[in-house]
């Protein structure tokens, strides 16, 4: 299911917006005109990752050398400071085994959204159909008004059969190895 989460002009370069879609808190980031969306829940202990500070990339091969790219693409969790790449969701410290859930974001014209909604693609008994009040069609805007003139950011949430809210998800058997 695709969700309209913001007007494209609403998030300036270097900025972010935290939205709730399908029971999930998600941060949408604008890195120099490219948009990325991450789950607002740190894979470490569930901190509100997307509220963390953004940093540039710093690298070094030897003490005292600093190679710095001021790209502000490293997201630092406000709870314990673990770092994640906004582009990939990968953790800096344990990239092979730790990453935050990342979602596809695209920029879509209001016209296209409106047409898709008019086509009314969802059969009534589809278990994945949007809840009442959402915009019909492949795009859902939970409370978001869409006009034909605008440009919108659309986040795709691949649904599992039953929807899981952040609250239940955070209780479901995560390993404690990283605490």
């Amino acid at each position: 299911m695709k969700y309209v989460v913001a007007e494209a002009s609403e998030i300036e370069s270097g900025g972010r917006k935290i939205v709730t879609v399908a029971g999930r808190s998600i941060g949408v980031f604008n890195l120099d005109g490219e948009f990325f969306a991450l789950r607002n829940r740190c894979p470490h202990q569930g901190g509100k990752l997307c509220e963390g500070k953004l940093w540039g990339v710093i690298r070094s091969d030897r003490p005292g050398d600093f190679e710095y790219r001021p790209s502000r693409e490293i997201l630092c969790c406000p709870w314990h400071g673990w770092e994640f790449h906004v582009r990939t969701g990968q953790s800096w410290c344990a990239p092979e085994r730790l990453r935050v859930r990342r979602y596809e974001v695209e920029t879509v014209a209001g016209e296209e959204i409106a047409e898709a909604a008019d086509a009314g693609a969802e059969p009534a008994d589809d278990p994945d159909a949007p809840a009442p009040g959402m915009v019909k069609g492949p795009y859902a805007a939970e409370t978001y008004p869409v006009t034909r003139e605008g440009e919108y950011l659309v986040v795709e949430i691949p649904f599992k059969k039953s929807r899981v809210s952040d609250r239940t998800a955070s209780r479901s058997g995560r390993s404690t190895a990283d605490r």
Partner: peptide
């Protein structure tokens, strides 16, 4: 959480 200070 502090490795940014010592990126080497």
């Amino acid at each position: 959480n502090l490795r940014r200070l010592v990126p080497w």
